[in-house]
Computed example of a mutant assay.
Amino acid sequence: MFLLTQATLPHFPEKGGRLVNIASIANRDAPPMQTVYAGSKGMVDSFTKVWAKELPRKYGITVNVVSPGPTLTEGFGKAGEDFMQKVRPLIEKTPVGDRFARPEEIAYAVGFLCKPRASRINGPHLIADGGLLVV
């Protein structure tokens, strides 16, 4: 992620560009048996916070992060029935509905941060989990 961002920065438009990173609620929820995955998503969150302070003035961009909850991506779909049964209790306690998020719902959150009207949104962590981690 660091090298990709570094390589793309010179190609952003002079003013008004957007960098939106994708993390996961695993970063906040710390599920068992997901040390490397959750840790890597924590790194995405940390990079985003630092870059939100460093990059706007230099590159004219905003930097944000979106953390999806369980989303029915191709990878989730191929995870198998055993995995789906383990995830089912999590899905069942999602306040906005007993289902996985659809990829287009997460894409909308990313798209929102890319709109011209979102030009003052810089640095927040947008959690798109249907209220699963509301505390």
Rank of each mutant, 00 (worst) to 15 (best):
P70R: 04
K53R: 11
S67Y: 03
G60D: 07
P68E: 09
Y59M: 05
V44S: 02
I61Q: 00
K49V: 13
A52E: 02
M43N: 10
G69M: 03
R57L: 10
R57W: 14
V44N: 01
F47I: 15
L55F: 11
E54G: 06
P70Y: 12
P56L: 07
M43E: 15
S46L: 10
G39M: 08
R57C: 09
K53H: 09
A52L: 03
V44G: 03
V50R: 07
K58V: 10
L55Q: 07
V50I: 11
L55C: 09
M43I: 15
V66K: 00
V65W: 00
A38V: 07
G60N: 06
A38E: 05
D45L: 14
P56K: 08
P56D: 14
W51R: 00
V65P: 00
T48E: 05
K49N: 11
P70K: 04
G69N: 02
K41G: 01
S46N: 11
A52N: 02
A38K: 02
V50G: 09
G60S: 09
T62F: 04
I61T: 08
N64T: 11
W51V: 00
P68T: 06
M43K: 06
S67M: 09
K49Q: 15
V63M: 07
K41C: 03
T48G: 05
L55Y: 15
Y59K: 03
V50A: 14
G42Q: 05
V66M: 03
R57D: 15
S67R: 03
D45V: 14
N64Q: 11
P56A: 14
G39A: 07
G42L: 03
A38M: 07
R57A: 15
S46R: 08
V63W: 00
P68H: 06
W51M: 05
A38W: 01
Y59V: 03
S67V: 04
N64L: 07
S67L: 10
G60M: 05
P70W: 12
Y59F: 14
E54C: 06
K58I: 11
T48F: 02
V50N: 11
G69C: 04
Y59R: 03
I61E: 01
R57K: 09
K53E: 14
K41H: 09
L55I: 13
T62M: 06
S40Q: 09
K49E: 13
G39H: 08
P70D: 14
V63F: 05
E54Q: 08
V65C: 12
V50P: 03
S67C: 08
K49G: 15
G60R: 03
